[in-house]
Each structure stands twice: as structure tokens, then as C-alpha cells.
């Protein structure tokens, strides 16, 4: 049983003109087994929220708290957060020249588990995870994300999700840049993760189409660094029909 709790989160980013507030008081509770979708227009702060949870050094939390099962996440380093059970699938996965996928995955698995995985089963597990997302196992010998297409990078994030099996996964626009087949494959990966029953998912997306494959329990509309509205899956359908206009206008005049 694990709960990620975000309370009154304010976050700034350093710019040339000083600190700029991006998140302006975010409240969100993700209990285990729950999938929350966060939807919002470009620039509303969705990635900022994802990065803040993961601890990216570019962002400064100025107010509020993030806890995982009551433990202060903000006091942890980036890698401690991952070892505590948080995972971020990035909107733009990073290329790491000269580091092979297989070395990367093994090092990460060892770090998360606190011991090296059994060699024999590990190779099988990696191959199986790759095959499930229809990634050629030859990718294991390539450098991390280097020269991967946008879709391949996203599949690689899902491979990591399955192998590292965190408590709470934050997926930042894992659907963007995917064609319909890849979208299904990636969604199936997320659903396999969810089917374990006690895993939390924060699914950040700009479009509603992924929600046809991954059914959220809650939908939050994110505008100008805040949650402007929340509801059940029906809210996604409403957004599909009406777009974000009414929220954006409301935020601008507020």
C-alpha cells in the first residue's frame, strides 16, 4: 500500500530575470491502485510537476510538500526518490552516449533492488520486456536512447517501467509522438503495470486519445500551474469535445 501525496506545491524555475513561479499550489493524492490523468495545455506546468516529483535540480520547491507513504520526498536526492519507489517516464528521454542499454538497465536494476539481478533470469527478463513492447532485442547493445526514434525512446521508457517496477509511475506525455500501433503497445505496457493492483500512475497527457486505452480513475485539468478542475473519466470526454479554452480563459481573467 503506497500513497503519493502532494500538498500546496509551489515551484519556481530560474530564468535570466530571476525565479519564475510555474506551479502555484498543487494538491494531489494518488493512492495505490489509482490512475490519475493530468491534462492541460502546453506550458501549463505538467512537466514541471513531473520533474519536481522526481527532483530535477532545475526546479526549486518554494512551498508545500510531497510525501510517499508519509515520508518526505523533497528531502531525498533524485536517486533516493527512485529507490523509494518513484519512476518518471520522461517526455524527452535523454541520450547517454557510450552507455549501452543493457549496462544501463542492469545498473539501474541493481541500484533499485540493492543487489545485482541473477544473471540468467535477468537477460531473459530484459528480452521479454523488450519483446512485449515490440522492441528488437538488438537495442540492448545500443547506447541509451542514442539515435532512437521518438517512438523507440518511449518504448524504452516502458521497458524500464516494467523492469524497475516502481510503486508510483509518473508518465510525462508518454503518448506523444506515437503512431496508433505504438500507442497501443505502450498503453498495454502501462496496463500490465497497473494490473498488479497496488501501483499508482500519474498519467500526464495533452491529448485524450491515450485515455481510450488507459482508463483513468480521476482526471485533473491543469492550467497555469494549478489544477483547475477534477472529476472522473467523463471529464476527459468533455475535454475531448470542448478543449481547454474555457479553463484557459478563466485562468487568464482570474
Amino acid at each position: 500500500m503506497s500513497t503519493l501525496e502532494i500538498k500546496d506545491l509551489h515551484v519556481t524555475v530560474d530564468t535570466e530575470d530571476g525565479a519564475k513561479e510555474i506551479l502555484k499550489g498543487v494538491d494531489l493524492v494518488i493512492k495505490d491502485g489509482e490512475t490519475h490523468a493530468i491534462m492541460g495545455p502546453n506550458g501549463s506546468g505538467k512537466s514541471t510537476l513531473a520533474y519536481s516529483i522526481a527532483g530535477h535540480p532545475k526546479y526549486t520547491v518554494t512551498q508545500g510538500s510531497i510525501t510517499l507513504d508519509g515520508v518526505d520526498v523533497l528531502a531525498m536526492t533524485v536517486d533516493e526518490r527512485a529507490r523509494a519507489g518513484l519512476f518518471l517516464a520522461m517526455q524527452y528521454p535523454v541520450e547517454v552516449p557510450g552507455v549501452s542499454v543493457s549496462n544501463f538497465l542492469r545498473t539501474a536494476k541493481t541500484a533499485i533492488d540493492g543487489e545485482a539481478p541473477k544473471l540468467r533470469t535477468w537477460v531473459k527478463d530484459v528480452n521479454a520486456a523488450m519483446e512485449r513492447v515490440k522492441m528488437d532485442t538488438a537495442f540492448a547493445t545500443r547506447n541509451v536512447n542514442e539515435g532512437f526514434s521518438g517512438g523507440e525512446k518511449k518504448r524504452h521508457e516502458i521497458v524500464q517501467l516494467e523492469l524497475l517496477n516502481p510503486k508510483v509511475a509518473v508518465l510525462d506525455e508518454t503518448d506523444s509522438g506515437l503512431d496508433i500501433d505504438a500507442l497501443k503497445i505502450v498503453s498495454e505496457g502501462v496496463n500490465r503495470f497497473r494490473e498488479q493492483g497496488d501501483r499508482g500512475v500519474l498519467l500526464i497527457t495533452h491529448y485524450t486519445r491515450i485515455l481510450r486505452y488507459i482508463k483513468p480513475d480521476f482526471v485533473h485539468v491543469f492550467v497555469a500551474g494549478q489544477i483547475a478542475e477534477q472529476g472522473g473519466p467523463e471529464l476527459a470526454e468533455q475535454l475531448e469535445a470542448e478543449g481547454y479554452d474555457k479553463y484557459v480563459t478563466a485562468a487568464a481573467t482570474a
Partner: peptide, 11 residues
């Protein structure tokens, strides 16, 4: 790069 690796639990 460092952030990406560390976000996977790597010290």
C-alpha cells in the same frame, strides 16, 4: 544525462 541516470536509482 546525470539526472536521467539518477532518476533510475543510480547514485
Amino acid at each position: 544525462q546525470l539526472f536521467y541516470l539518477r532518476s533510475r536509482g543510480i547514485e
